[in-house]
Computed example of a mutant assay.
Amino acid sequence: MDTNALKTLPEIIAQNQTPIITKLHANGQEFAVVPVGMQIQSLKDIRDEDRQTPAYRADFVKTHDLASFIAHVGRFKSDDTVLFARLPAITGNNVLFSIRAVIDHHPAGTDTARAGAQRHLVIYVPVLHLRAQRWLDAERKMMAQGDFAAFIEDNLSDLCVLEGFTPPFGTAVATPADLLTLSRGLEVRVNQTVRNATRLATGEVSLTFTTENTRQDGSELIVPEWFGLRVPVFAGAEPFVLPVRLRYKVADGAIKFAYLFHDFDRMLEDTVRAAIDTVRKAHPDLHIVEGSAD
C-alpha cells in the first residue's frame, strides 16, 4: 500500500463529508474512503455486483464423443489455448484416457503480468465400446463348453481373418468360419465327455468325444490356437484388429475354454494415437502436450 497516501487519509476524511474514491495502491487498485468509522473498503465486490458480464469465462464441458470435442474447442479456441493428452492406463477392465483443452491458458512467453484464468475447460473422456467391453469382461475366464459356444455365436460379427500375423512356432490361425464350426460342434456335443485331446503339428488340438450313454466314439473336433478379433476400442472410434489366443482345459472329461488377447497394449496405444492425430489435424494451430494439466 502507498504509505504517502495513508498519511493523507485524515485530511481527506476531514475535508469530505461523502465517500470518495482514491487510488491507494501502486497497481492502481481503487478503494472507497468512507468517513463513518474511517473505513477503507475495496470496490471490487461492489463493482462485481454491478457487472453485466463475468470478469472471465468459467465453464467445464465433458464429452465422450471426439467429434463433439473437436467442434466445441473450435468454437472457443484462441492463441492461448493448450491441449493436454493424458496417455492411457488400464485399471481392471477400464481404460483411462482423456484429452483436456484449457481454452484460456497462460499466453506464451515470459511476461508474468499476463496470465490466463484457466477456468474455461473442455475434456474428452472416451468410453469403451460395448463390443470391446464384452470381450474384455470375459478375457481369461474359463467358460464351460456350452457357454463358450454360445459366446462365440453371439459375437460372431466381431471375428475376422488375421492378415499379416505370423503366430509363434508356425501354429495355425482360424478363420471366422472355423470358429463357427467349432462352436456348433461344441453345442451338439454338450452332453458328451472328452475322451482324448491330441495336439497336432499345426498347433491345433484334435478333441475326441465319447457319448456317455452309448460309450461310442464321436467324431473329432478341431480346436484352433489363434483367431482374429476386429472391434473398436472406444465408442465412435475405428475398429482395430487383434490376435487372440484360444486356451482350453480338460478335467474329468469336461472341457473349458478361455481366450487371451495378444498385444492388447499396442492396439490401445494405436487407438489413442489415432485420436490425438485426429485432434491435431483438426486444430493444427494449437499446442498439444502429452501429459496432465493437473
Rank of each mutant, 00 (worst) to 15 (best):
P176K: 01
T211W: 02
T193A: 13
P224A: 10
F227Q: 03
L200W: 09
V161C: 08
V190Q: 15
T181H: 09
D154M: 09
V161A: 11
S219C: 06
D158Y: 02
E220Y: 12
E238H: 13
E238D: 12
T166A: 07
A150K: 12
R230V: 05
S157P: 01
P176D: 05
L229M: 14
R199N: 06
T208Y: 13
V233A: 03
T175I: 07
E225G: 12
P176G: 03
S206G: 11
L186D: 02
V173G: 01
D154V: 06
V173R: 01
F151P: 00
G236M: 06
V188A: 07
V190S: 13
E212H: 07
V241P: 02
D154Y: 02
V173P: 01
D154T: 13
A172Y: 13
Q192W: 12
T208Q: 14
I222W: 00
I222E: 04
T193F: 12
V190L: 15
L182S: 01
P243D: 08
D154P: 06
F227W: 01
S206L: 11
E187V: 10
L156S: 08
L182T: 03
I222M: 10
A177K: 10
A177H: 11
R195D: 13
R195K: 14
R215W: 10
L162A: 13
